[in-house]
């Protein structure tokens, strides 16, 4: 993606369009859909925004697993609202991607045919209610660390979508924290359930920031284009820094015996992340990859007759209107 051709573009004579784009980026301004942009910038954004949209849509599944079994009506209402927010986020993001010249149908086809990526964390299952807490606290927490800087992303429609999304995500994170806190103050079984969920989600959540900086192929160009603002490792550190005091308040243990603050480096020391597992899940061999895609495909295929009906109805209505206006003329 970071093709040398793009980088060397600055060195040769720039076209007025290129100059304008470079100036906007240099001034930290927004690029809007009407503006000229390099193909690679467009492609990078389509990839990133559509992956983000897919993550929201696939991310509904592990949580919707508990809507029918939520243990109180209050929790059921909160969970339904949350999953619905995620559908809303997916919709804004698909719209933002559409401004770059790809259709939602194309993106949906890429997703259900297994050609698109989404956050691999959603390929883990949610066997217990405590997973609703751990997803909110850890997964949404990691997402916020990743996404708050994206509110300033150089592409206008993306940055603006992220502002709205981040507000809701921070609410989700607090709800997740609250679910775990309630469990930790409950019965032994509930405390065990909470700790077990934190144990299972902690490492996959740290992996959400992507590979270490020296192995992240797309990062440099994205940072140059003001799409990305902080490196993967910086964001991961920031996230852990946020978790540590919150874990203490709840009384859960973060499952890394090596985790401790290092005064000398000014960073947290932590155990090595198991990137083999990350690669495996990314390659489609996670515990629930096949199931997630299958559910999306089935919903899409089983709903085809409904979408066809809506399209056919709209066509007939338009025809009638045309006939009516023709009759008048």
């Amino acid at each position: 993606m970071t093709s040398p051709a793009d980088l060397s573009a600055v060195e040769r004579e720039r076209t007025p369009e290129e100059a304008q784009f470079d100036d906007l980026i240099a001034a930290d301004s927004r690029i809007e859909p009407r503006d000229w942009m390099p193909d690679a910038y467009r492609k990078t954004l389509i990839r990133q925004i559509s992956q983000h949209a897919h993550s929201e849509i696939i991310g509904m599944q592990p949580e919707s697993n508990w809507i029918t079994r939520a243990p109180s009506l209050k929790r059921k209402a909160i969970l339904m609202a949350k999953v619905q927010d995620e559908a809303g986020h997916g919709l804004y993001l698909y719209s933002a991607a559409q401004t770059l010249g790809i259709t939602r149908d194309e993106m949906m086809a890429q997703l259900i045919e297994g050609r698109a990526r989404y956050s691999s964390i959603f390929n883990y299952p949610t066997p217990t209610w405590a997973d609703m807490g751990a997803i909110g606290w850890l997964v949404d927490g990691a997402a916020i660390c990743n996404q708050v800087p994206l509110c300033r992303a150089s592409y206008g429609p993306y940055g603006r979508a992220m502002v709205r999304i981040c507000k809701e995500e921070s609410f989700h994170q607090r709800q997740g924290f609250e679910i775990l806190l309630e469990l930790m103050q409950g019965t032994d079984e509930q405390r065990q359930m909470a700790q077990d969920a934190v144990n299972r989600w902690y490492w996959p959540a740290l992996q959400m920031f992507g590979p270490p900086d020296d192995q992240s192929p797309n990062s440099a160009q994205s940072m140059a284009w003001n799409i990305k603002r902080f490196s993967n490792d910086e964001l991961r550190q920031r996230f852990v820094g946020m978790l540590v005091p919150q874990a203490e308040v709840m009384g859960v243990t973060l499952p890394d015996p090596a985790l401790k603050w290092n005064d000398e480096t000014g960073r947290y020391d932590m155990s090595e992340i198991d990137w083999t597992e990350f690669e495996e899940v990314l390659a489609g061999r996670g515990p629930a990859n096949a199931e997630r895609i299958r559910r999306r495909r089935e919903a899409h295929e089983e709903g085809a007759w409904v979408r066809e009906a809506a399209a056919e109805y709209a066509r007939k209505q338009a025809e009638r209107q045309l006939a009516a206006s023709g009759a008048v003329a």
Partner: peptide
Amino acid sequence: LGMWITRAPELEEDVALGNIGL
């Protein structure tokens, strides 16, 4: 209606049926 969420014919319907359920 909660059972429709993630299974609706369109994403807009995941939202709409979820909202009605809520």
